[in-house]
């Protein structure tokens, strides 16, 4: 589903590369934690998958497409097959929960009747039934992140990318979000999650890819956050 072959990414010539000769292969339906300290290259890794960045060298393949030869007008199609969740939720503050989720479907041209059917379904899936008319600032952080997950998953993407989705949440709320991501993963969606949260990684016992200074230093099935923890 996702394959990085000898990928190196340097932002400025001469500086230390953000990723160095990274080789990672992620199968369909896998749940992968991407761990490592700040600046280790986790975000660059995720941005490469969305073709927000191009690798300096090496090849990135996502859902059978070689991103290096993917023309720019096909990038929107690629992004429709990838859902994204971020630490800062990125909800639209002037839209209700329902409108936020519907927006993501409308702008990719989904017909109105489909949007009307999908939005309540996916809100129920993330456990927000009955809160569709709330504004984001009326919700707790955990609920806002559930809206973001609903938005990312509404189009049933093949891949869900989560960049520190629990970074702004307390441990109890984080567990709820992780259960949700786990449930999404069980529907067959490949999940790639960058995180700092050792407790979560340790409790989930999923595959762990650890980056350090841009290199993969560990790739372990059913791993834990780190040997030091």
């Amino acid at each position: 589903m996702i394959r990085l072959e000898h990928v190196t990414k340097s932002y400025a010539a001469g500086s230390r590369p953000a990723l160095l000769d990274v080789d990672v292969d992620i199968e369909k339906g896998e749940f992968v934690f991407l761990v490592g300290s700040s600046g280790s290259g986790k975000s660059t890794f995720l941005r490469l998958l969305l073709k927000e960045e191009r690798p300096t060298s090496g090849r990135v393949r996502v859902a059978g497409k070689d991103l290096g030869s993917l023309s720019s007008w096909k990038v929107p199609a690629l992004r429709r097959s990838i859902g994204c969740v971020f630490q800062d939720f990125r909800l639209l503050p002037n839209k209700t929960v329902t409108q936020n989720v519907a927006f993501a479907l409308e702008v990719i041209g989904k017909p109105r009747h489909q949007v009307a059917r999908i939005v309540p379904e996916v809100l129920e899936l993330v456990g927000l039934e009955g809160k569709g008319d709330r504004m984001p600032d009326e919700l707790s952080g955990g609920e806002q992140q559930r809206v973001a997950v609903a938005r990312a998953f509404a189009n049933r993407p093949m891949i869900l990318i989560a960049d520190e989705p629990t970074g702004n949440l307390d441990p109890g709320t984080s567990i709820g979000i992780m259960k949700l991501l786990d449930r999404i993963n069980r529907t067959g969606t490949t999940v790639v999650m960058a995180t700092h949260d050792a407790a979560i990684v340790d409790s989930m016992r999923r595959r762990v890819v650890e980056l350090s200074h841009g290199r993969v230093v560990r790739d372990q099935d059913r791993g834990v956050y780190g040997y030091g923890s």
């Binding site: 969305l50 007008w73 990038v75 929107p76 199609a77 690629l78 992004r79 429709r80 097959s81 859902g83 994204c84 990125r90 639209l92 927006f103 993501a104 702008v107 990719i108 041209g109 938005r151 990312a152 189009n155």
Partner: peptide, 11 residues
């Protein structure tokens, strides 16, 4: 958000 969810440039 539009870019992220794959809205076309035209849209």
């Amino acid at each position: 958000v539009m870019r992220l969810v794959g809205a076309t440039r035209w849209y």
